[in-house]
């Protein structure tokens, strides 16, 4: 193993670490689990790094490996889905923007997203990241049409979770 490889990896990972943090936020509940998943994804990225040719952007590649790791780990643990509190999120909004109704809605939305399964979370994640269907399909290894269909189903599912009677 050479040091140059390591240095470029660490530098790029550090610059793109928010990608991993965001995935952790979607797939874990609590600080410790977040850190564990972050570390696991880092290790997997490092293991896969020698195969990263640089023909795509580091971030695109990182999305793929990180999501795969999260999905695989999520399957392994088969954690029962518990309701999650998204408290303490107010600090994301500053005073002017603070809106009680919106905040309530957001809380419900995050809780709903948390109830999705591993693949659905990956799709919703890409959507939240503002990726187009082409990039979603490349990252997750599904066809573009399939991605669209799945996304529509997820929207339906979310609606149902938010409004079970509607």
């Amino acid at each position: 193993m050479n040091t140059q490889l390591e240095q470029s990896f660490v530098q790029q990972l550090q610059e793109n670490q928010n990608i991993i943090h965001k995935i952790c936020r979607l797939y874990t509940n609590g600080d410790d689990a977040h850190k564990d998943l972050f570390q696991e994804i880092t290790i997997q990225l490092w293991k896969a790094y020698p195969k990263f040719r640089g023909d795509s952007k580091f971030s695109t590649w990182a999305y793929r490996v990180a999501l795969n790791t999260a999905i695989t780990l999520y399957r392994k643990t088969k954690r029962s889905i518990n309701t999650v509190e998204f408290e303490g999120r107010q600090h994301f909004l500053n005073e002017v923007e603070y809106n009680y109704e919106e905040e309530e809605q957001l809380k419900l939305m995050y809780a709903a997203v948390y109830q999705l399964n591993d693949i659905e979370k990956a799709l919703i994640f890409m959507y939240l990241e503002d990726k187009d269907y082409q990039e979603i399909s490349e990252t997750l290894g599904i066809s573009e049409v399939n991605a669209r269909v799945k996304m529509n189903r997820i929207k339906g599912k979310l609606k149902k979770i938010l409004n079970p009677l509607g």
Binding site: Q17, F92, L93, L106, M109, K155, L158
Partner: peptide
């Protein structure tokens, strides 16, 4: 879906909160 757009906005706003 209105809620999803709201979520997206909040998601991107919290980008640097980690």
């Amino acid at each position: 879906m209105k809620e999803l757009d709201l979520l997206k906005k909040d998601w991107q706003r919290s980008e640097n909160s980690f």
